[in-house]
C-alpha cells in the first residue's frame, strides 16, 4: 500500500433500480430538470469516500424539537404531536454515528412557512417547520414535531401530497449524500402521489413509510413513528490495492 492508498473500499455501487429515474414525466417538474445524457461512472476516490464532519456544539438544544424551536414562550403549534425516531444505518447494517440529519415539513394544515407557498391552509405562528440533529450511539436519532397535513400542488389538476417529512442525510462519505421523504403508515394518498410513484417498485416505496409504534408512544402526549434510514455501505478492502490502472 502506498501512502496515497485510500483507507477502505469504495461504496457499494448505487442500485439505480430502486431510485426514481431522472426523467419521470408524471412528475412534471422533472421533465426539464433531468439530464438526458448518461451519468459517467467514476467510482470512489478520496473525494467521494470523505465528507464533512459536524459537531454537536454547532447545533442548538431545541433544534430537533419542532414543537419548541419556533413557538412563542409558553405556546405550541396546533396539530397532532408526534415523535419521529429511528436509526441511521449503512447497507451493512452498521449504525452511522455523528451524522447530520436535517428535516423540513408543512404544518398541520399542509402549509409551508415559505414565501412561495400560497396554499389556503393557514400558517401557524408557532411552527417554523425545520429541524436538525446529529445521530448518537448506534446511529440513533429523534425529532419531536407536529404531523404535517397533506397539501394540493400544481402538477395535475387535483394532485395532493400525502403527509410527509423531507429528510436531508449525510454519511461519512460525500457519495452517500441523499435527500428523501418519509411518509406515514396508512395514508391513502401515498398510493396515488406522482412523486411517490417516481419510485419504480412498491417494496422500495415501503421503506419510506414510517410505522406507528405504540411501545414508544408517550401516553397522553405524543404518538411515536419509527423510521429507519439506510445510506450506502462500503465494500471491504480486499485486494483494493490492485486497482492500479483502473
Amino acid at each position: 500500500m502506498t501512502k496515497s492508498t485510500p483507507p477502505s473500499g469504495g461504496f457499494f455501487p448505487r442500485n439505480f433500480k430502486i431510485h426514481p429515474p431522472a426523467y419521470a414525466p408524471a412528475y412534471k417538474s422533472s421533465i426539464v430538470r433531468s439530464p438526458k445524457l448518461a451519468l459517467v461512472s467514476i467510482g470512489n476516490g478520496l473525494s467521494e469516500l470523505t465528507g464533512p464532519v459536524f459537531g454537536h456544539e454547532e447545533l442548538g438544544p431545541t433544534d430537533n424539537d419542532l414543537i419548541a424551536n419556533y413557538a412563542a414562550q409558553g405556546e405550541s403549534p396546533i396539530g397532532e404531536r408526534i415523535i419521529v425516531y429511528g436509526k441511521l444505518l449503512d447497507e451493512r447494517g452498521k449504525g452511522i454515528e455523528g451524522a447530520l440529519i436535517e428535516i423540513w415539513q408543512a404544518n398541520s394544515a399542509g402549509r409551508y412557512r415559505h414565501p412561495n407557498d400560497k396554499y389556503l391552509g393557514p400558517l401557524d405562528p408557532n411552527f417554523g417547520g425545520c429541524g436538525r440533529t446529529i445521530t448518537g450511539e448506534g446511529g440513533s436519532y429523534e425529532f419531536r414535531t407536529i404531523k404535517p397535513g397533506p397539501y394540493p400542488w400544481p402538477n395535475g389538476i387535483n394532485d395532493w401530497r400525502p403527509s410527509h417529512i423531507h429528510f436531508s442525510l449525510f454519511g461519512p462519505g460525500f457519495a452517500q449524500r441523499l435527500i428523501t421523504q418519509m411518509y406515514f403508515e396508512g395514508d391513502p394518498l401515498i398510493k396515488i402521489c406522482p412523486i411517490v410513484n417516481t419510485i419504480p417498485d412498491n417494496e422500495s416505496i415501503d421503506l419510506l413509510i414510517a410505522r406507528l409504534d405504540m411501545a414508544n408512544t408517550i401516553p397522553m402526549d405524543a404518538r411515536a413513528y419509527e423510521f429507519n434510514i439506510v445510506l450506502r455501505g462500503q465494500r471491504s478492502t480486499l485486494f483494493e490495492n490492485r486497482l492500479e490502472g483502473n
Binding site: I18, Y112, I179, T180, I195, I199, I229
Partner: peptide, 15 residues
C-alpha cells in the same frame, strides 16, 4: 455484507 438497501431518493421539492 450488503444486507440492507439504501433508501430510495425523493426530490427535495420546492421548499
Amino acid at each position: 455484507p450488503q444486507i440492507l438497501q439504501e433508501l430510495p431518493s425523493q426530490t427535495a421539492g420546492p421548499y
